[in-house]
Design a binder for these strands. Sequence first.
DNA 1: GTCTATAATACGATAGAC
DNA 2: GTCTATCGTATTATAGAC
Lengths: 215, 215
Amino acid sequence: MSRLGKRAAKSVRPVRDAAATQQQILDAAEQEFAHHGLKGARMSAIAQVAQVTSATLHYYFENKENLYKAVLQRPVDEVQEILAQHDFDALSPEEALKQIIRIAISNEAANPQRQMLWFQESSQNQGAYFKECNVLTLHEYLLKVLERGMKDGSFRPLKPFLTLTYILSICLFYFTVHENWRHLTPEIDRLSPEMIEEHTKEAIAFIWAAIQQRD
Amino acid sequence: MSRLGKRAAKSVRPVRDAAATQQQILDAAEQEFAHHGLKGARMSAIAQVAQVTSATLHYYFENKENLYKAVLQRPVDEVQEILAQHDFDALSPEEALKQIIRIAISNEAANPQRQMLWFQESSQNQGAYFKECNVLTLHEYLLKVLERGMKDGSFRPLKPFLTLTYILSICLFYFTVHENWRHLTPEIDRLSPEMIEEHTKEAIAFIWAAIQQRD
DNA sequence: GTCTATAATACGATAGAC
DNA sequence: GTCTATCGTATTATAGAC
């Protein structure tokens, strides 16, 4: 095989493309850190999945901890960008709430392992880097909608912060436990588009029934 | 100090008490595995907290993996024992549901790190040991209550398995994120008895509003 | 039943060639 | 920008004394 042929075969990740390599490392690291946390993650495992050597990891991110922080930061930036594209104030509290639920679920569905990043961070790091990441955006949008809905009478009186917790737990817990619960109902693929759609519909119905004001 | 004095000082764990040592190891291991998962946990850290040497760990549990399995099994057995003391069929679906919520929350409150054990198991082990542990008990009781409530018309028509997921997520997610969310509201101690009581009341109200049948 | 000492390996990180 | 080779240490596990 000629050198040209070899290069063509590698075209999925061109040699010496810094940006591409960095993305590939972040993708691999996100998986590994989500699965095993900071301590449990293995640099060698990340290197293998990213198809680079561990020396390359250190070249881009210096050490394990910096790589971990970079991995945590990425989803925060992505969510912020998505939320910035919406104007929830222009919607009724009911519609805004349903929009946020759809965003939260579809975002997790696209990255079903991402929530574990934050659980790992919470339990093994006591959330030390959580604050640094300025992760509050989704919480703030949701809080504002809840308060608006209570004010205009479309939601019943609620403890805002507990209700916020419950809404997010309904959306996200589903993805956190799916590997365990797969063993309860092996015939169901909880990550299939159909099941995600059912989850979305049912979650909206559940939450709306829980918080709406009735006569 | 005399040998007698030394022995008295150690009286919290008498020397050469196999049962006590084993419990102490399991307690320490539960903490460590919940915080760091199977790979991330350090045998030396467990040994230090349990106040034994790592050789003692191997004496009782042979290796890391066996210790991990023993740690997973213990909470399952405890929950099964608690549930066996109740006769949910004797209660109305509404009352039975509220009882189960109270049990789930108070159980997590007593061991706020325990849920992370299962999340770790789900994400890093794909729930490989989850099935072995026969952990289904709580799920089964709850499913039965949901189906009974739908049948007698006290609950609205629900997807049983999704609703089960939502109810447990509301009860448990609260504990999983408390270390992270502590940074959002540093003045609140989410594990204080008062906050747990508020969580319990609010969770029951939320869930009941979500699933009750109305005219 | 518990310890000390140590073997054997796994892991993070760096140096230097290309 | 990426690799190979390697250093130093951390970690699991075992052997053998008490």
